[in-house]
Amino acid sequence: MQRFLIERLALLLPNLLGISIIVFLLVRAIPGDPAVLMVGDLGTPEDIAYFRQQWGLDRPLVEQYLRFLSHVGRGDFGRSILTQSPVIHELVPRIQATVLLAATAIVIAITLGVLAGIAAALRPYSLVDHGTMILALTGVSTPIFWTGLVLMLIFSVRLQWLPPGGYGTPWHLLMPAFTLALFAAGVIARQARSSLLEVLGSDYVRTAKAKGLAERQVVSRHALRNALIPVITVAGLQFGQMLGGSILTETVFSWPGIGSYLIQGLLGRDYPAVQAAVLVGATWFALVNLLVDLLYGFIDPRIHYA
């Protein structure tokens, strides 16, 4: 178990290093010079040159990259070109905001998805089954920002129950979390239904039924546990992808998270900010995948990480 963990963490490092190189190069390939943007139209060529020198933008790429790495190593991710303060100061509250949003969303998605999946699988090919599965497919087919806008229209504009955006109270969290959850809920419901159906058709479930256990017992004690393993994989993948979805959700609801930080950084050519945000996203994705692998061990005693 420990060896497995160490091995996986060791694999993580070269992967993140690769990602950091790609991000570093991509960000610098974006047309538009941060020096020109920051100095403004009135700046003389000398001003621009001075700015570039101040921020080390005139150094060779390799040197810039190594400097970026050393800042990551020191844990401050460099200073933001837009706000001049260390990126880490802005990053931490934004990571907290996005984690809060995504964690709430995945809890909602798993609850809705698993319940819908069970309801559908218990009565396959019934009206309930077709109804929930069409709903699930619609959830998967709806653009996140549109869900957000429609919820906003209903609950903020018409009913005036919830604030249309912002951050701070649980009321602010409700709509963005549901918006972000809907896609994942659809994916999870589809997976839950198909894997539960498969398990319900297996021999050991028939045995359990044959020895006279109540349907409820068979499903909750025997079938669900095994059916949940692929569901966890899918939920984990969705949680990893939520950083992408949160870019849209945060834009619609002006949620001060990592997604809106990234867009702001991209538009302002704030190299250090973009690099940090993407790196955080990739680390998030990798850690979630690792966590999912570890969870298997708890759910399925057959899996051992020797």
Binding site: V27, I30, G240, L262, I263, A282, A286
Partner: peptide, 16 residues
């Protein structure tokens, strides 16, 4: 290891 949309956003910013 990037969410698809993140990758598309970064690439499209590079291309314009």
């Amino acid at each position: 290891s990037f969410p698809t949309i993140l990758l598309a956003i970064v690439v499209v910013t590079v291309l314009g």
